[in-house]
Write a protein that binds this DNA or RNA. Structure first.
Lengths: 246, 246
DNA sequence: CGTGCATTTGAGAAGAATCAATGCCCGTGG
DNA sequence: CCACGGGCATTGATTCTTCTCAAATGCACG
């Protein structure tokens, strides 16, 4: 296994011991690379693995019968991909490389073995999935109830925050290696309209744009147009280990 | 504790042994009733419990800064409520009684104790949450990428299916104790437009409506306008217990 | 038999989609 | 070195779905 795996997401809720961390390192297969537009897994396939994203961006998308696409999550390095389909006979989402990516496959059996043997790992994963669910709830609220400009602003803030957490964003903005069509598929808009909204944001001096590089110029105003909630994660999840005030 | 608790959701993925089922029965506090419009828990509060819905319907909603509301889930009897906020310092969603309801509160500590001591229960809950996440993905796709009529059709089909699974729907339709405004908040539409869409569905003989009673007249056509995916859950989640082909 | 919530209907406005061109960047091959 | 082509981005003109505002109706409940 490679060293320097981005494992920050595994311990975001609970610190894990050395044994658990070693087990996590041993979970994944050797890294595999995919080019941009490569497909890690197609929806409809029987899910046999999940994936740890080592580098690059991956979009998880659902296809509708009419051919429309909804990108349900933009994954950044460190994310675990494909976990939602663990409960299904056939995967719900397609995993698309938005950039060249490197991933480590994790067989479901390996994941399950660790889940069954380490309550701490199980609790950690359980909370992570709940966190993903909250993110999805917030996105549903944004798509269902906010304007195009609010959705774009929320996306930019979300990416900025997540890239920072993963140590991938500088102070001078970040690369956003995603086409406007993909942004549209993520936000429930057309590519044309995404373009117009970006123009609005630039004209209003909320952001600056240079090719795919985005700089957030006015965080306060962006936050206010985005209607985005800030969610603080629990500080004391000990109760999930049986320690809590039961 | 009351007998005849609706516990079907606990074992939807994995059969649980007698000991686990007994422990689950012991999880909840004595039932509490709320009137229609009652609030089980408000967003922003520190989450200290989850809730098992014994009877009635509950809406879980997120409030946006502008006052708009998104109902992220319509809960039916047997559902576990408020679990997504387990990972947060302050609850993300408000739990609103859509009808008079009866719920049993479950302290997080009790849940955590069982989660930590029974890998089978933990695995079961983990898969249930993933299933909720998939449902949310599908709804995001519907709200982001389908027309108003498709969303309403999808909602009706979803409710019909879930009520059937809980043994609460007859062949002559079902009661839908929800205002058109609430339906709008669930689907990202206005109440006015929900009304117009219902008219369309009735005029097209897709459904019949009598006060709040809904009858699905033409399932095939409803399915085709709804653009809704059918999701089969995994038949063999044994790998999550460490049994799988690791 | 009011009173209040919910539904229904109409008219007009608005936000976003659609359709259609054009332009730009960049890699490729002559 | 430059012409060519493909994928994206950009912009304009127009259409359409859905929202907004407003008013009337209907139904349940005290």
């Amino acid at each position: 296994m490679v060293d320097r795996l981005p494992l920050h997401r595994f311990a975001e809720f609970l610190p894990l011991g050395d044994a658990d961390m070693r087990a996590i390192r041993a979970l994944g297969e050797p890294p595999v690379d995919y080019p941009r537009h490569g497909v890690l897994r197609r929806e409809g396939e029987a899910p046999r693995h999940i994936y740890l994203l080592l580098s690059g961006w991956v979009g998880a998308s659902v296809l509708l019968p009419g051919g429309e696409r909804q990108i349900v999550k933009i994954h950044l390095p460190g994310d675990l991909l494909g976990t939602s389909s663990m409960c299904l006979a056939r995967a719900a989402d397609t995993l698309n490389a938005l950039t060249p990516v490197s991933v480590s496959r994790i067989p479901l059996g390996a994941f399950g073995a660790l889940f069954a043997s380490s309550p701490r790992f199980a609790a950690s994963m359980f909370l992570s999935v709940q966190r993903e669910r909250v993110a999805l709830m917030d996105r549903l609220a944004a798509v269902g109830r906010t304007s195009a400009i609010a959705r774009v602003a929320a996306l930019l803030l979300d990416l900025d925050e997540r890239l920072r957490a993963a140590g991938l964003a500088g102070d001078d903005g970040f690369e956003m290696p995603v086409t406007q069509e993909q942004i549209g598929d993520h936000l429930g808009l057309t590519a044309v309209h995404v373009n117009r909204v970006f123009r609005q944001l630039v004209d209003g001096a909320l952001i600056a744009r240079n090719r795919q590089r985005i700089e957030l110029l006015d965080l306060a105003r962006l936050r206010s147009v985005s209607a985005r909630q800030v969610r603080a994660t629990t500080q004391d999840p000990g109760w999930l280990l049986g320690n809590g005030a039961a």
